[in-house]
Design a protein around this nucleic acid. Structure first.
Length: 873
RNA sequence: GGGCGCGUAGCUCAGCGGGAGAGCACUCGGCUUACACCCGAGCGGUCGCAGGUUCGAACCCUGCCGCGCCCACCA
């Protein structure tokens, strides 16, 4: 009996053309309101803070990767009935925007300094307005289901209020202070950098040993930065160093400058390194600064903000630091004071991660965050389980960082960003103002410095929800569900958000889970970089293989916290998978498969098996996605679709469809399985599954279809075993055919003996269909017999290969089988012959080995008999 | 110097205590009525090296070799 169903109208083209499928689909989703957060509903909230798309005007592979994975999480949650909300922002991409604007200005023959602060900032706003839309369009092409309707894309203005508020609170709590400290200075940017903006690299420099003083009191010190000797105010030795004990407390003349400097004893000095004497330049070296503080040394600054020597009263004033390095060395050499020169001397030097030049330690007045209590809270939140880190291997890195954090320098001498809300009065007055305070009157001026970009980015999890106001959004979505980002910005961004979130929201962490992904690499595992020339524009692959293929390939490689090598081959393989799914669905539609049909009351073995597998795969997919194991989840769906559904079930279904007794049930099962599978795959391949799901079900959209929670059936062990036996039998016969050089296109008459005894009587037609066997006709004279030993019994396949079999090939094949069986027997005997194994190993393991031994013995007997029966070749 | 991790098939990786796996590549046979972006069969590995624990180790422990990343104020 056939149920009557309303017709399905969607027509599926014969060929999957990603471009055509994607065209207009995203727009339709947006217009249907699928991505609009429904605040105020009683759905559970799922909120995710996302790093901003890069604003440099193009989509990077890294962004395509990260945003695809985030979109998978969000689409699944939406199907599960959550109210989903993204919190995107652009603020911390400001650096990129400003750099681009500066470049544009340079092309126009002007600069930001000529333009002035206000006009420059105006230009950056214009740039964002113009290019923000282009980025948005690219993210949409990627299929990202952002709730753009809430217009959080540009939020700089509202953010300023949050920045000022938290600055004042931290300031009033004594957690922000201003102090003269040794900082990392970038002469090129003429700004301070925080510790994590400094990259340490080995460079080839020089180590120059200089003699200070003359005669018996002379000392030799070594340095890699000779020019700093102009700012020396002491020479330090170790207190226990007997070589210099007599000199401590005396003074010595500083060459070139002529100033008298002290000789001090300090524990910091390593007596075994070099001469054991160290020159001390307190204003230009962190260690020397500490020594200077301990011994109350003068701290003259000898370099200006752009790295030019100044104020030494020597001929070196006005020279760039690198020019001076050579000049000072030559001057010292002329006086015969260079004792030794080691060149090249490889040593570790900090470089600016932004501009690339060596940073210059410099004594300067800056604003700092006292991170002690904040970092402690950030560590505790993970320690006591309020925040989970995925994968957990990255926890030590987190603790190592937050437990040893130095105070954070937050002031920057740049023109862009949020200005420090502190005003200085004419009589030395200092006042920190909140967002609603009136600036003080005449004579007061606001601090010229701006805040580190991570200061404001750290506020996102709550500033984007309306903080400092208590908004419905904030109450509903804070703490957010998960932060999903790359491990590379764990310290830059994640640590800031944790510290500020816990502080501003009274101990509530900004997110329940920190899930970290790796970096996209090329197909050989190499870092993608412009200089290596191995970067790929994701749009290029999207054009060539489709967005679904790119997303599938990226997700398929995404193991938690580890890097993802992706090459064009992987994307092509993903495209092939899409084609496979497309064709399978097309076949299903062609035979009338429909999920709206009732599942059969008496499913066949194949039906029961595939429904059982569907359930297992569905449960496994859920578990893996909950654990951010995208690669395994996607791999599982890939193999289920291709190796089980397409390679076996569809072939078995063809036979069932030809039989009136099983045809309707097959249509129902196939419809059900595909329906659930398309829904499971939708988060990964949204466009493709949308087209297929609508065609298959006649439904409105898979975007809003429920996530499958019931699909499939409990595993039918007996049916599954019979299907496995059929698979084994089919594979064996195919192997025999290939080895006997029977071309695939030739049908062969054959008789299957023992099928009923093995419990596979019902699968005669299926086996015959899958290995292209014809029923034996009259006068059937088999030329070959193949024995296949199955768990339930041995099946003899008698074949008429129409000619003598290839005895040599058969002998070789049987020989391989015999070798394998003997090896198996040897291994089993070795184990069973070991009394301690039999005694100690679990019973089921021992039993398993016994069974394998039995099978091996039977196999050897059978194969040996077959070999003996072969005619001489 | 400290921390984390990796060395498994030609390439990229999964497996992490009981019969060595996947994708791509390669070989052979097939345009079989969903699919040649395909189907079928196959080749290919002393699981970095050396010890140890265990009845049993690619898997656990130790050492060594090679590689990567993060952190770190040694002139």
């Amino acid at each position: 009996m056939t149920e009557t169903l309303p017709p399905r109208t969607a027509d599926l083209p014969a060929q999957w053309n990603p471009g055509e499928v994607e065209a207009g689909m995203y727009q339709r989703w947006v217009e249907a309101g699928y991505f609009t957060a429904d605040v105020g509903s009683d759905k559970p909230p799922f909120c995710i803070v996302i790093p901003p798309p890069n604003v440099t005007g193009s989509l990077h592979m890294g962004h395509a990767f990260e945003h695809s994975l985030i979109d998978i999480l969000v689409r699944r949650r939406r199907m599960q009935g959550y109210e989903t909300l993204w919190l995107p922002g652009m603020d911390h991409a400001s650096i990129a925007v400003h750099a681009l604007v500066e470049r544009a200005l340079a092309a126009e023959g002007t600069s930001r300094r000529e333009l002035g602060r206000e006009a420059f900032l105006e230009r950056t706003w214009e740039w964002k307005a113009e290019h923000g839309g282009a980025i948005l369009a690219q993210m949409r092409r990627l299929g990202e289901s952002l709730d753009w309707t809430r217009e959080r894309f540009t939020m700089d203005a509202g953010l300023n209020r949050a920045v000022v508020t938290i600055f004042k609170r931290l300031h009033d709590d004594g957690l922000i202070y201003r102090a003269e400290r040794m900082v990392n200075w970038s002469p090129e940017m003429r700004s301070v950098l925080s510790d994590i903006e400094v990259e340490h690299r080995d460079v080839s420099g020089e180590l120059v040993s200089i003699r200070y003083g003359d005669g018996a009191d002379a000392l030799v010190v070594a340095t890699t930065r000779v020019e700093t000797m102009l700012g020396d105010t002491a020479v330090a030795v170790h207190p226990d160093d007997e070589r210099y004990a007599h000199l401590v407390g005396r003074e010595i003349e500083l060459p070139l400058v002529g100033r008298m400097i002290k000789i001090v004893a300090d524990d910091h000095v390593d007596p075994s390194f070099g001469t054991g004497a160290v020159k001390v330049t307190p204003a230009h070296d962190p260690n020397d600064f500490e020594i200077g503080r301990r011994h109350n040394l003068p701290m003259p600054t000898i370099m200006d903000e752009s790295g030019v020597i100044t104020g030494t009263g020597t001929e070196f004033d006005g020279m760039d630091r690198f020019t001076a390095r050579v000049a000072v060395r030559e001057a010292l050499a002329a006086q015969g004071r260079i004792v030794a020169e080691k060149r090249p001397y490889v040593h570790n030097v900090g470089h600016s991660s932004r501009s690339g030049e060596p940073i210059e330690p410099r004594l300067s007045l800056q604003w700092f965050v006292r991170v002690g209590p904040l970092a402690q809270a950030a560590g505790d939140a993970v320690r006591d389980g309020r925040v989970a880190v995925h994968p957990p291997e990255l926890e030590p890195r987190w603790f190592g960082w937050v437990d040893n954090m130095h105070d954070w320098c937050i002031s920057r001498q740049l023109w862009w960003g949020h200005r420090i809300p502190v005003w200085y009065g004419p009589d030395g007055g200092v006042v920190c103002l909140g967002p609603d305070d009136e600036p003080p009157g005449a004579g007061w001026a606001q601090d010229e410095d701006v805040l580190d970009t991570w200061f404001s980015s750290g506020l996102w999890p709550f500033s984007t929800l309306g903080w400092p106001d208590t908004t419905p959004d904030l109450e509903r979505f804070y703490p957010t569900s998960v932060l999903f980002t790359g491990y590379d910005i764990l310290f830059f961004w994640v640590a800031r958000m944790m510290m500020f979130g816990l502080y501003a929201m009274d101990g509530a962490p900004p997110f329940h889970t920190i899930a970290l992904h790796g970096m996209v690499r090329d197909q050989f595992g190499k870092k993608m970089s412009k200089s290596a020339g191995n970067t790929v524009d994701p749009l290029e692959w999207m054009d060539r293989y489709g967005t679904d293929a790119l997303r599938f390939a990226l997700a398929r490689g995404a193991n938690p916290g580890t890097d993802v090598p992706v090459g064009e081959d992987a994307v092509a393989a993903a495209r092939n998978f899409g084609t496979k799914l497309w064709n399978a669905t097309r076949f299903a539609l062609g035979v009338g498969a429909d999920p709206r049909l009732s599942l059969p009351a008496a499913p066949t073995d194949a039906d029961a098996w595939i429904l059982g597998r569907l359930r297992e795969v569905r449960e496994q997919t859920d578990a893996l996605l909950e654990d951010y194991q995208f690669a395994k989840a996607v791999e599982g769906l890939y193999h289920f679709t291709w190796d089980e559904l397409c390679d076996w079930y569809l072939e078995l279904a063809k036979v069932q469809l030809a039989d009136g007794a099983t045809a309707d049930g097959t249509r129902a099962v196939l419809g059900h399985v595909l329906d659930a599978l398309l829904r499971l795959l939708h988060p990964v391949t949204p466009f493709l599954t949308e087209a297929l799901w609508i065609a298959l079900t006649g439904g409105e959209s898979v975007v809003v279809a429920p996530w499958p929670v019931e699909a499939g059936a409990a595993t039918d062990v007996a049916a599954t075993a019979r299907v496995a036996a059929v698979q084994e039998l089919v594979t064996e016969v195919r192997r025999f055919r290939t080895e006997q050089r029977v071309p695939d296109n030739r049908r062969v008459a054959a008789r299957l003996v023992g099928l009923d005894e093995a419990g596979l009587g019902g699968h005669r037609a299926a086996v015959a269909s899958m290995v292209r066997l014809d029923a034996p006709g009259e006068g059937f004279a088999p030329t070959a017999t193949l024995e296949v030993a199955l768990a339930a019994g041995t099946v003899h396949v008698e074949l008429d290969t129409s000619g003598a079999i290839d005895v040599a090939a058969e002998r070789a094949r049987l020989g391989r089988d015999l070798t394998a069986a003997r090896k198996e027997l040897d291994q089993a005997d070795a184990k069973l012959g070991n009394p301690r194994f039999v005694e100690k190993a679990p019973a089921e393991v021992v039993e398993g080995i016994r069974a394998r031994r039995g099978a091996a013995v039977a196999g050897i007997e059978r194969v040996t008999a077959r070999l003996a029966a072969l005619p001489p070749s």
